[in-house]
């Protein structure tokens, strides 16, 4: 039972890695970037939403916002623990960046990331009031759904398993956003919703920025990626259009 097979060849055939002891160095780096992006995005997202709790128009809305803050932080913790198994100082990590820091509201859409952390670019833009936050949560929640579906297939089994636990929680946040938007539509807020949608849609779309072809090839050979960003973007657009149609919001 000692036949030799390189880790690269094992991975390219769909093999799974299960612990930090035998991940190749470059795989380790790309995997850690992926996990850091997730953790930073969840922490930044939760931090941004924390300020919105008090903007909730009623107690139900405030409970929903508080739940989202709690659960996104909890999701960050799940993956941060995996980073810890690779040597990251988890206690220091959680407080190493100002997660509430944002660009000015009028900063144009782009894929530029903050210099200081790995959060997805969209999380560098500030929320502006309750309706804006609910629209952002719907747009972003669906994008997160598309990305998590991809991450569940990742070749590092502990991460795939963590994401399988996280995905239904995040899906519930999208439902909360849709319920919140339905209430806002009943209250005649369609203009404010349209304005928020015009602001957030291109900014969320930008997180599906291009991955250079050769890089994607390498990542998929390692089993870290499966679908390319164009396909993920398409899936997200379809899901968002369907949700907007259900709500009667013009896309």
């Amino acid at each position: 039972m000692t036949e030799d097979m390189s880790i690269e060849s094992y991975l390219s055939q769909g093999g799974k890695l299960t612990n930090p002891t035998n991940v190749p160095p470059r795989y380790r780096a790309e995997l850690m970037k992926m996990m850091a992006t997730f953790v930073d995005s969840e922490l930044a997202g939760a931090a941004g939403f924390a300020d919105v709790i008090n903007a909730g128009p009623g107690i139900k809305e405030r409970i929903a916002a508080a739940k989202i803050v709690l659960e996104k932080t909890d999701n960050a913790d799940r993956v941060l623990r995996l980073l810890g198994e690779f040597g990251a100082d988890t206690a220091r990590y959680a407080t190493s960046h100002p997660w509430t820091a944002r660009l000015p509201r009028d900063a144009g859409p782009g894929t530029h990331r903050s210099e200081h952390d790995m959060r997805l670019s969209v999380l560098n833009y500030p929320l502006s009031g309750w309706t804006d936050a609910v629209v952002m949560n719907l747009c972003m929640g669906l994008a997160v759904g598309a990305q998590l579906a991809e991450m569940q297939k990742v070749s590092y089994q502990p991460l795939a398993e963590a994401i399988r636990k996280v995905a239904p929680v995040e899906a519930r946040h999208v439902e909360l956003a849709e319920e919140g938007l339905a209430r806002l539509m009943e209250q005649g807020q369609s203009d404010a919703i349209a304005a928020a949608l015009a602001y957030w849609r291109p900014r969320v779309a930008a997180i599906f920025g291009d991955v250079a072809g050769h890089r994607f090839e390498q990542l998929s050979a390692w089993g870290l990626r499966h679908q390319n960003n164009a396909a993920l973007l398409q899936g997200w657009n379809d899901a968002l259009n369907a949700a907007l149609a259900r709500l009667g919001v013009a896309a």
């Binding site: 790309e30 850690m32 970037k33 850091a36 100082d89 220091r92 190493s96 960046h97």
Partner: peptide
């Protein structure tokens, strides 16, 4: 590769 740029994560 990098992530935290603060010496805590070891991605780099």
């Amino acid at each position: 590769p990098f992530a935290c740029k603060a010496g805590v994560c070891s991605t780099c």
